[in-house]
Amino acid sequence: MNKDFAGKVAFVTGAASGIGEAVARQLAERGAKVVVADLKMDAAEKVVAAIKASGGEAAAVSVDVGQADQVDSAVQFAVDTFGRLDVAVNNAGIGGKAAALGDYSLDDWHKVIDVNLHSVFYSMKAEIAAMLKTGGGSIVNMASILGTNGFASAPAYVAAKHGVVGMTKAAAIDYAQKNIRVTAVGPGFIETPLLGANMSEEAMSGLKSLHPIGRLGKPDEVAAMTLFLLSDAASNITGSYHLVDGGYAAQ
């Protein structure tokens, strides 16, 4: 097993399920000490238990990423627990309600923007401060295919993910000469239990058909790209946006 993250400390938000869990598990498998950060502490602790059962090192922390003070505390927890911060994945997010822009409520707008956009700013601000103290690091922000594409009835989500891509580029330029790389990943629609539970068979078939590859992506496939970008193998890659979308955005 490749242990290229041995000795490194990783902080992953939204890590109790889906893509975040896959990222946390793969990082631990490759030697990282992983902080599993999530709003759902019980689920986060289960991920930590699974990592430890496989011989890895991990700790769980509860965080509402829409609250800057909680994000600061969670990143400090990572530093206090494992001594430093080397890599971070800002993955936590929500879909939000489906409605055309003119019908979108202000409360729903602010909730999606807080969790999907503001949280990435809060997280990077705290992560970068920690990384600068130990010579640098690498950050991956989880965007979406909707970081460059539009989608009906999702104005807040699309706006937030476009913002994540732009913020990634700005931060990458700011810290390129300080040994901190910042990139973004754009998953297509990903196969998760939550997605399947809320869709009819017909709707799921229609969603799959939007992807030229003919299927939804898997969390482990997104995690694989994420780990590459975090690794030293991507040492000359920063400020860029990488799709894992089965050809969705190529159409």
Rank of each mutant, 00 (worst) to 15 (best):
F228S: 07
Q26I: 03
G217Y: 04
A203I: 04
R215M: 06
K97I: 13
G239T: 08
G95K: 01
G7F: 04
P187K: 10
V222C: 02
M225W: 05
V115C: 04
F77T: 12
E201G: 13
F121K: 05
S105W: 13
S17T: 14
L210V: 06
S240E: 14
D4Q: 13
A68N: 08
M225N: 06
A6R: 01
D232M: 00
G7A: 02
A224N: 10
A249P: 00
T238S: 15
K161S: 01
R84A: 10
Q177L: 14
V112G: 09
M199D: 03
G196H: 14
G166T: 07
V87T: 03
Q76H: 03
G166A: 06
K133V: 03
D114K: 12
I128F: 04
D108M: 04
G102S: 00
L194M: 14
Y104I: 11
A6L: 07
A49S: 15
M199T: 04
L207N: 02
E29T: 07
I145H: 00
A22Y: 08
G96W: 02
M167L: 15
V71K: 02
L117A: 12
L194W: 10
A88K: 00
Y241T: 02
A143T: 09
F151H: 10
L216C: 06
F82L: 03
G196Y: 13
A74Q: 09
D80H: 01
S144W: 08
I190H: 12
D108H: 07
G136R: 08
G83N: 03
H118M: 10
A129E: 12
Y248R: 07
T168P: 06
K169Y: 01
Q76C: 03
N236I: 13
K8E: 01
F77A: 11
V140P: 08
S240N: 10
A233K: 15
K208W: 07
D80T: 10
K125H: 14
Q251W: 03
